[in-house]
């Protein structure tokens, strides 16, 4: 699946997107976060505090308990700050 990182998460991970195949026991967003954190120190740093990270699966906001299933695209980013 495609994993996307925005804003300071991209800076910490070191890339904007990557194509990864998580192991079969990764079922939820929380599982994916735990697995991604083992990929590099940058990943671990970016995903260390999920209180300040939001997740979207196939462009819909989801919580950590969300079951990823056959998702094509998972994005991690900080709370949004658009507008004025």
């Amino acid at each position: 699946m495609k994993i996307l990182y925005f804003a300071w998460l991209r800076n910490k991970v070191g890339c904007a997107e990557e194509e990864l195949t998580p192991p079969a026991d990764v079922a939820t967003v929380a599982d994916l976060v735990a697995w991604l954190a083992t990929q590099s120190s940058g990943h671990a740093d970016a995903l260390a505090d999920m209180q300040v990270v939001r997740c979207a699966v196939d462009q819909e906001y989801v919580g950590l308990e969300h079951v990823i299933g056959a998702a094509r695209e998972v994005a991690f980013f900080p709370p949004v700050t658009g507008g004025d």
């Binding site: 979207a56 980013f77 900080p78 709370p79 949004v80 700050t81 658009g82 507008g83 004025d84």
Partner: peptide, 12 residues
């Protein structure tokens, strides 16, 4: 404008 600020994925 209130909803946009917390729902639209923009970062400054």
């Amino acid at each position: 404008i209130d909803w946009l600020k917390t729902e639209a994925p923009f970062w400054k």
